[in-house]
Design a binder for these strands. Structure first.
Lengths: 132, 132
DNA sequence: AGTAATGATACCATATTAGTATCATTTGTC
DNA sequence: GACAAATGATACTAATATGGTATCATTACT
């Protein structure tokens, strides 16, 4: 089971690279540095732009820049963007079988795992990773 | 992100039903009780048998029985059977890019989540769920 | 012999993930 | 203004995982 998908992982790497530079970077440059398939990386940066994590500039000399503080970009944020909201305890039987949602013995236990994971993931920011 | 797949969830339900009875049960009976697609449930029980969680008897009057103590069947066990070993921190870049596996800043943090999850999941057994 | 069960295995359908391709739009430079 | 270099938007393809079916072989009770 993967906690992070490739999108998310690439996004982390790209953001780390961008946070280190602090200036506008074109995809071409990042591709060289990160060795991520170019069109794939492009789409990732575009999604980050839509999510307002990056800013972008079109045209010659354009590229992407960090728009949000590195300390305010956490793994949960990125996971939410690329993998949807983090919820491990999603009941498989919402609509059908499950007779007792409230009292479901699994839910409460798994929620604890989810809570722990969320707290951890929120604490992991680009700024924090950059320091390492 | 689902922590448990349907296989695992169905397995839990089936095992709870079987632990409550304690005697040999045929798939037909369980299907009625659990409302799980018959051939799918069969395959699940067969996998549990291979994993030595259940015993089985062929032929007329045959079926499946719990072979392992309910207290010794945990969610991690079932997840391992149906979803592969639980490891959230699996590095996406094992073979290729990742330059520094040991010092990877993500790994250590995610390992903590994994450890917490494993401990929790190990503590959730069929016996425990049965008591609720 | 017949029937009711599991064993084994191959198959199909759908969803998700990973990645590609293409065309439109913007913008700096000559 | 023309051209080149960048992103915006979007549709498509390939591979893998998940959820579920179908079928035939084997076993065992009556």
């Amino acid at each position: 089971m993967k906690l992070l998908t490739r999108d998310t992982d690439y996004a982390v790497r790209a953001l780390l690279a961008m946070a280190a530079r602090k200036s506008m970077v074109a995809v071409s440059d990042l591709v060289i540095e990160l060795k991520i398939p170019r069109p794939f990386l492009r789409r990732i940066l575009q999604r980050l732009t839509k999510a307002d994590v990056l800013g972008s500039l079109k045209g010659k000399g354009g590229g992407f820049v960090l728009k949000r503080e590195p300390a305010k970009i956490s793994l949960v944020d990125l996971m939410a963007i690329f993998q949807g909201p983090v919820q491990l305890s999603e009941c498989l039987f919402k609509k059908k079988i499950c007779p007792n949602r409230k009292t479901c013995p699994l839910r409460s236990e798994i929620s604890e795992i989810e809570d722990f994971a969320l707290t951890k993931l929120r604490s992991i920011t680009i700024a924090k990773l950059l320091r390492k």
